[in-house]
C-alpha cells in the first residue's frame, strides 16, 4: 500500500478513537449537570407521577452506562434521537443548520485564506517596509477587537446608516445563490476580519524564519529575484506551519461563530446549540458537541495529511 494511504487510514483510526473518547467526556459532563432533566422540562407544578412517567419515557431511570451505550449505538447508526423542546428528530434540525454554518464558513474561508496568504507573502517580501507595517497594524487591529464589536461597527456603517447590506442574514429556505451571498456578506466579512490576521502573520513568520537558511542564500547566488526566492524556495518549505494554522482557523470558522450568528440572526449550528442549552434540550446539545468535535478532528487530520504530502522527506524515503 502507498505509504500516504496507510498514513491516512492510520490517522482516521486515531481520529475515530479520539471521537469515541470525546463522546464519553460529553456524556459524563452532561451527567454532572445539576438538577433533574424531567423536572426541569415539566416545570415545578408537575406531579411526582408525571415526572416518573416522563423519566421512564426518556430512559432516565436506567443506569448511566446503559443510557450511554444506547445513545452511542443510535449515533453510530445516524439516529441522534428526538429533540426534547419540539419533539422533532434531531437529524432534521441539524441538517439544515449545519448546511448554513458550512456555507458561511466556506464563504469566509474563500475570501480570507487567499487574502491572508497573499498578504503574508507580500509582507515577507517587503519586510520592514511601510507596506509590511500597514498590513500588520490593520490585521492586528481587526483581531484585537471582540467579534461582536466588529460586527456592530459593520452593521452601523454598512447597514443602518447606508442601507447597503441587510442587517439580518437569514435568507429563508429557497433563496438563490446571489441572494445568499448578498444577505450573508456582513457576517462573512466580520469572520474574515477576525481570522485573517492569524493566518497572515503565520505565513509571514514561517517564510521569514526560512530566509536565513543556506539554500535561500544559494538561490540568491544563482541570481534569483526576491519574489522567486520567496515563492519557489521559501514557500514550499514553509507549507507545514501555514497549513496547520489555516486548518485551525477553518475549524474556528465552523465551531466558533456563535456570537456572529447571534448578532446577525443567522440560523447556524452555533445558534442552535445556544438555544438548546437555554431550553435544556440535552440530546440536541450532545449532538452539536459531537459534530463540532468531529469537524475539529477531521480538519486537523487533513492538515496533518497535507503537511506530510508536501514534505519530500516524508513522501520520498531514502
Amino acid at each position: 500500500m502507498h505509504p500516504l494511504a496507510r498514513m491516512i487510514l492510520h490517522r482516521l483510526a486515531l481520529g475515530l478513537l479520539t471521537l469515541f473518547v470525546i463522546s464519553l467526556v460529553i456524556f459524563m459532563a452532561i451527567e454532572l449537570l445539576p438538577g433533574d432533566l424531567a423536572e426541569e422540562v415539566l416545570g415545578q407544578s408537575a406531579t411526582p407521577e408525571t415526572v416518573a412517567a416522563f423519566r421512564r419515557e426518556l430512559g432516565l431511570d436506567l443506569p448511566a452506562w446503559q443510557r450511554y451505550l444506547s445513545w452511542l449505538g443510535g449515533m453510530v447508526q445516524g439516529d441522534f434521537g428526538m429533540s426534547l423542546a419540539n419533539n422533532r428528530p434531531i437529524v432534521d434540525l441539524l441538517a439544515s443548520r449545519l448546511g448554513n454554518t458550512l456555507f458561511l464558513a466556506a464563504y469566509a474561508a474563500v475570501i480570507s485564506v487567499p487574502l491572508a496568504l497573499c498578504l503574508g507573502l507580500l509582507a515577507a517580501l517587503y519586510r520592514g517596509s511601510w507596506f509590511d507595517r500597514l498590513v500588520n497594524v490593520v490585521t492586528l487591529t481587526s483581531i484585537s477587537f471582540p467579534e461582536y464589536f466588529v460586527a456592530y461597527i459593520l452593521l452601523l456603517f454598512l447597514s443602518v446608516r447606508t442601507g447597503i447590506f441587510p442587517s439580518i442574514a437569514d435568507f429563508g429556505n429557497d433563496a438563490g445563490f446571489g441572494t445568499m451571498i448578498y444577505r450573508t456578506f456582513l457576517p462573512a466579512i466580520t469572520l474574515v476580519l477576525v481570522v485573517t490576521a492569524h493566518m497572515m502573520r503565520m505565513t509571514r513568520a514561517a517564510i521569514i524564519n526560512l530566509l536565513a537558511q543556506p539554500y535561500i542564500e544559494m538561490a540568491r547566488l544563482k541570481g534569483a529575484s526576491p519574489a522567486r526566492v520567496i515563492l519557489r524556495h521559501a514557500l514550499p518549505n514553509a507549507l507545514a506551519p501555514i497549513i496547520n494554522v489555516v486548518a485551525l482557523n477553518l475549524a474556528y470558522l465552523i465551531t466558533g461563530v456563535v456570537i456572529v450568528e447571534v448578532v446577525f440572526v443567522y440560523p447556524g449550528l452555533g445558534q442552535l446549540m445556544v438555544d438548546s442549552v437555554a431550553k435544556r434540550d440535552i440530546p440536541l446539545v450532545q449532538a452539536c458537541c459531537l459534530i463540532f468535535a468531529a469537524i475539529y478532528i477531521l480538519l486537523n487530520l487533513s492538515a496533518d495529511v497535507f503537511a506530510i504530502a508536501t514534505n519530500p522527506r516524508l513522501m520520498h524515503r531514502k
Partner: peptide
C-alpha cells in the same frame, strides 16, 4: 559567476 558551498546538504533546497 557561480558558487559552490561547503555543506551541500544545507545549500540544496530540500523541497526540490
Amino acid at each position: 559567476i557561480a558558487y559552490v558551498a561547503q555543506s551541500a546538504a544545507a545549500y540544496f533546497n530540500p523541497a526540490h
